[in-house]
Design a protein around this nucleic acid. Structure first.
Length: 256
DNA sequence: ATGGTAGCGCTGCTA
């Protein structure tokens, strides 16, 4: 089973690239983030024409998450377990069971800066994700938490730690919050298969960052041990960051 | 050199 995740930075702007990528990468499941659309705008017919089922959770603002699957899509749950659906929470989490795997598409808040209220929101959101796992999943079963975590797990995941000192994505509290989620029983599959530094999934659009290899690895597939120990292959598809109108993120895929 | 790019949507915010 091939599970992939991709922050597409607007599904409307990126649909042609997503369609192209589905045709050649052929993931069984693709988690999307930053669709930037409302549920009513989700291209259901176009998705169905590719042979995938789709579920979407978005309100038309800058967030929005989706799951595409060609191995079933059941038990779809938007947001955190126990949250009031009318409370106006940002659309950053979607869970579904696909081919026997409980899959989550997550878009962790950016945080903006360490002194911003959004940073506290980011830490709280990560704490709630841990709680969501505790209450909805069994770590001994097949679980894959996939998405844009907006956290580089270690300094090996950024091009220059000295430039990023004091900024979000690398701060100790958010790395500890991520580690707490992994402690629930999840493995960063790409990292376990690729120990070397300098492998990134996101590059700023500005200043030729992609071509100068200035990026961060912030898009992760966290798999439960049952899946991780059966993983045979993982890849960040840098080709998808090239060409016309790319997202600023590359897709990450794992085979289990 | 405090810039730069992309998306949304129409002004400035978010990333």
């Amino acid at each position: 089973m091939r599970i992939a995740t991709w922050n597409v930075n607007s599904l409307r702007a990126r649909w042609a690239r997503v369609e192209e990528w589905l045709a050649y990468a052929r993931p069984d499941v693709l988690c999307l983030q930053e669709t930037k659309m409302a549920d009513a705008a989700f291209p259901r017919d176009a998705v169905a024409a590719t042979g995938y089922e789709g579920a979407h959770h978005g309100d038309g603002r800058w967030n929005g998450v989706a799951i595409l699957s060609r191995v079933g899509l059941d038990g779809v749950q938007a947001g955190f377990a126990g949250d009031d659906p009318t409370a106006g929470a940002e659309c950053r989490l979607l869970s579904a069971t696909c081919g026997g795997v409980r899959v989550m598409s997550v878009y962790v808040p950016n945080g903006r800066s360490l002194d911003d209220a959004q940073y506290a929101f980011k830490l709280e959101w990560l704490r709630k994700l841990r709680g969501h796992l505790d209450t909805t999943c069994d770590a001994d079963e097949a679980v894959a938490v996939c998405g844009d975590f907006n956290i580089a797990p270690t300094d090996a995941d950024v091009w220059d730690p000295s430039v990023l000192a004091g900024m979000t994505h690398v701060s100790e509290p958010e790395r500890l919050a991520l580690a707490d989620i992994e402690t629930w029983g999840l493995v960063d599959v790409f990292r376990s298969q690729h120990p070397e530094a300098g492998l990134y999934s996101w590059w700023d659009y500005r200043s030729g960052a992609f071509h100068q290899h200035r990026g961060m690895r912030i898009d992760l597939v966290l798999a439960s041990r049952l899946l991780a120990e059966r993983s045979t292959f993982s890849l960040i598809d840098r080709q998808a960051r090239k060409g016309p109108q790319p997202s600023d993120h590359a897709p990450v895929l794992v085979d289990v």
